[in-house]
């Protein structure tokens, strides 16, 4: 009773926001929708949470059809939109009470589920939501999405604009919620967070590029990738881009990830070329693909 999505399409006038999307999220799974802004992630979330009707296709959430059974879905899912959507002029406590009441429950009844998160914002329970910091708002929004003990939780870019420490803590919270049996569909533009999901779908321009476990997705990357470094990053990128055999050149932290067009590639040859371009301290080492490499390769073709 997770989520099933079958051939879903949605257009806004000329823009094809989603094109024939199909995938399933298994019960209890932590599933990541990975893609940049404009990929169609929010449109899909809004269809699954019954806030938008697709042009075609079928979808079910917790066993209910998103069109026919929309009322049942609303009772059984939690949704944390990307944009902070709580009442800014209600306090922390008032917001939470409000959402509990709407769903015919109380904070006390499901306190166990939110306890760990709520204790972190409890010192500010009488502060208006609009006056909270970004991290606090995010925690309050998660509590409000959980207060009616949903079977399925939808989190639309919960960590966008959030610093690495808070992001790490947020993902630890998600893992614990998953252990309590909640199915979670989460979207993110941060590729490093993909590795924390059971399975992921890479999405761009309304199309699914690939669906699999994060481990399998990086294994599918077919070309050997080389970490290249030299004394000057700007010159290095320019020289690599001008190299006639380059297949891809992407800055990656302290290195540039380089792939070659040829099947038999000799790093020494590249080194000689770079030396002829007056680069020094050249280092070329083979490395393994990341989700981001895979994403870029798929997005390119």
């Amino acid at each position: 009773m997770g989520i099933t999505i079958s051939n879903i399409s949605k257009s806004y006038k000329k823009v094809k926001a989603l094109q024939h999307i199909s995938f399933d999220v298994k019960p209890g799974e932590l599933f990541g929708l990975i893609g940049p802004d404009g990929a169609g992630k929010t449109t899909l979330f809004r269809i699954l949470t019954t806030l938008l009707i697709a042009n075609e296709g079928l979808a079910t959430v917790a066993g209910f059809d998103v069109v026919a059974d929309y009322k049942s879905i609303r009772k059984n899912v939690g949704y944390m939109p990307g944009k902070f959507s709580l009442y800014q002029d209600l306090t922390v406590k008032e917001n939470l009470t409000f959402f509990a009441t709407i769903f015919g429950t109380t904070i006390e009844e499901n306190y166990d589920l939110i306890k760990e998160i709520y204790v972190q914002i409890e010192p500010f329970k009488n502060r208006r939501a609009g006056k909270l910091s970004g991290g606090m708002k995010q925690k309050l929004a998660l509590c409000c999405a959980l207060i009616h003990k949903p079977e399925v939780l939808f989190l639309d870019e919960p960590t966008t604009g959030v610093d690495p420490v808070s992001r790490k803590e947020f993902w630890e919270m998600l893992k614990r919620l998953q252990q309590k049996g909640i199915t979670i569909l989460v979207s993110t533009p941060y590729m490093d967070e993909a590795a924390l999901c059971d399975r992921i779908a890479l999405i761009q321009d309304g199309k699914i590029l690939e669906i699999d476990t994060p481990q399998a997705i990086v294994k599918h990357y077919s070309k050997p990738i080389y970490n290249v470094r030299a004394h000057n990053m700007y010159q290095l990128i320019n020289s690599l881009k001008e190299y006639q055999y380059n297949h891809s050149v992407y800055p990656f932290g302290e290195y540039v990830h380089y792939t070659d067009k040829r099947t038999s590639f000799n790093p020494e040859e590249l080194k000689m070329y770079l030396e002829s371009e007056n680069l020094t301290n050249i280092e070329i080492k083979i490395t393994v693909a990341t989700i981001e490499d895979t994403f870029m390769e798929l997005a390119k073709s």
Binding site: G35, P36, I237, P251, A299
Partner: peptide, 14 residues
């Protein structure tokens, strides 16, 4: 570069 796709993010850094 928040929310920008990974290829564009790199073009931006270039």
């Amino acid at each position: 570069t928040g929310g920008v796709d990974p290829i564009t993010r790199r073009q931006f850094w270039e």
